[in-house]
Amino acid sequence: MSAWIRLLRSSLGLKYLMAGSGLVLVGFVCGHLVGNLQFFLPPPVINRYAHFLQSNPELLWGVRLILLVLVGVHIGTALRLWALNRAARPQPYASPATAYGSTLASRTMLLSGLMVAAFVLYHLLHYTVKVESLNGTPLAFHQLREPATGHADVFAMMVAGFRVWPVSLFYAVGIALLCLHLSHGVAAMFQSLGLRNPVYAPLIQRLARLLAVVLLVGYLSIPAAVLLGRGQNYLRRVVEHTAAALAPTPANPPAAH
């Protein structure tokens, strides 16, 4: 048997795939947060960053494809392991499930993972594909344009999206599940790859929890800031500017149907 077949067939090989794909996906989650935190700088900064990404489709789609493949590997492997694990105990215990030494996060990885996947799908439809019916607001995201440049206004879109409180609440639940998943997943990743020994095992556990808390606070700071009023005036200006640009004027007549 070659090393590749072993990687795909042995239980340890499957765990390497989980850990390896998870590692890159965690890297994306961290990078995405850093990008998003530009929300706390003046609006042109994050808009310029978004325009940079949008105007490099080779880079953008390259990364998107890699992430998509890794998400597929991560979920596919998880389901295969789940099937193997279920088959290993056909008869359950009569006594209620006990949690000796295990955390809630570690026992619910598949559930939290699938819920995060559903959330990511919603999140993509909301802010990337911009399915306007998911907004919960009459503002059309794809019409929001930065007054100075005419590029897509991501800052205004974030404000318009998160000021709808049910959207923010749903987002918070998704992020909380992601962080629960990572509080165990990041530590388990080191374990699965064998990168753990008695000296730094406690450090890894703390690092995983710290990372989960940092991500939770970081991601939730954005909807929290919006709900506390950040960017409302800016959004009003963008909406007025957009309305003026779209309004039928003698110089800009509506398209004939």
């Binding site: 340890l12 392991l81 949690a99």
Partner: peptide
């Protein structure tokens, strides 16, 4: 047998308190 989800239940019930660190060693 199933695969490891690193819950740590095995270590907790082991009558000889074998450490989870050995699983990392085996993985390596």
């Amino acid at each position: 047998f199933g695969a490891c989800t690193v819950t740590g239940s095995c270590e907790a019930v082991c009558p000889k308190s074998i450490s989870l660190d050995f699983i990392a060693r085996m993985n390596r």
